[in-house]
Design a binder for these strands. Structure first.
Lengths: 207, 207
DNA sequence: CTAGGATGTAATCAGTGTAAACATCCTTGT
DNA sequence: ACAAGGATGTTTACACTGATTACATCCTAG
């Protein structure tokens, strides 16, 4: 099939139109309220048309989540541009939380349980690994260079991941309010605490 | 009103019957699939009866979440029975994650976004603070005794919270699989990494 | 012992996910 | 060039759901 932009085949590109509409809707009303029928109305198509392109609602959500994972990994990778591994670890963490703050609903979709039984969607699981891979790379470098504690980099990377994921989730759900310092300072401080814990020489970081 | 167990007033105690039925259902099918009508059928009551006791579905979820928060705080408090503050910090974290693993669906309800706009439920927000308070207490002791870094205990407690919340969430959603060491060892290791980061003398913990 | 609030019900509305049957379009093989 | 057939879209329908309304019943307080 070769459909270019001039094709008049009914609509043009229902799948991506649905995805765009969905991103707008979740930003506005939250993931919980997303409805296939409303999306269909948005893009001017019958309420069963989406089923020609997505097996069910879950598959549409999976697509949205995968796009989110890809974007997240890209932003993390872009943040890891420093010379020092330590700086990279912090920057990658900050980028992670900032992504979550900028796209809270998509983030919820990626990590929340709106997509039931994510194990049944191997493509989704694979996409979600891209973000972890960025952290893991830095962890490997950190261990090899002697910056980090001499442990399996997987464990160290997971420690970092859990930390930023916890911060992001709690922030999104409003459990981190009432702070009296600048947000970015706070964020960096929190992440630094955590990374200090996996340093071979924690004295490197003055707190 | 004074309803004892012998009361024959239609049903007896619809609210708590609903809560029990709900806990069973979410354990079985997950929070996402919980339906008021199904609950009403479960306890043998008309589908609108629940609305006499809960303003809407959200209020029932709030009750479930509050019960969860109370239980979580209790288990954490029970875990903080060591003499050394350091041991308590670790134990409280382990208890937190273990609660999440034992009641994953209730945990999702407590922290996920199934309850929309939790800020509009002050009672819920208040309940959720009980768990944090346990950690905060230990953080205060830790700072005063010179064990922890000399920072506002709130920041240190939040650091601990974010860490265990991240671990719990990722575990529940299956992002922490494929580990080749014993679970409890892994968990303790991860939490210890984090706490090491807020120690005044990280050398205290040999990793 | 009666008024009135608390509790329960039936009937109904609007919204959802999804399946089945049918219509139409576009590409592709001959 | 044109028929075949798959891809795409629609209509209709079913089985759910949360929630509101009007009404019936129960229990208790004055």
């Amino acid at each position: 099939m070769t459909l270019d932009k001039n094709s008049q085949y009914h609509h043009g590109d229902v799948p991506s139109a649905l995805m765009s509409a969905a991103l707008i809707r979740i930003k506005q009303d939250g993931v919980e309220k997303l409805s296939l029928r409303a999306l269909a109305r948005d893009i001017g198509v019958s309420q069963t048309a989406p089923y020609r392109h997505f097996k069910d609602k879950t598959r549409l959500l999976v697509s949205l989540a995968r796009a989110g994972f890809a974007k997240l990994a890209m932003e993390q990778q872009a943040a890891a541009h420093h010379k020092l591994c330590l700086d990279n670890l912090i920057a990658v963490g900050v980028a992670y939380v900032e992504f979550a703050m900028n796209h809270p609903e998509q983030y919820k979709l990626m990590f929340g349980s709106k997509i039931e039984n994510r194990c049944q969607h191997p493509d989704l699981m694979e996409s979600s690994m891209a973000s972890f891979q960025v952290v893991l790379n830095q962890a490997v470098i950190g261990v090899e260079s002697g910056l980090l504690v001499d442990k399996d980099p997987h464990y160290l990377a997971k420690c970092c991941w859990a930390n930023v994921h916890g911060i992001a989730s709690l922030l999104i759900d409003g459990f981190y309010d009432n702070l009296d310092i600048e947000f970015k300072d706070f964020l960096t401080q929190q992440i630094t605490f955590n990374i200090r814990g996996i340093l071979k020489e924690p004295a490197l970081i003055k707190v």
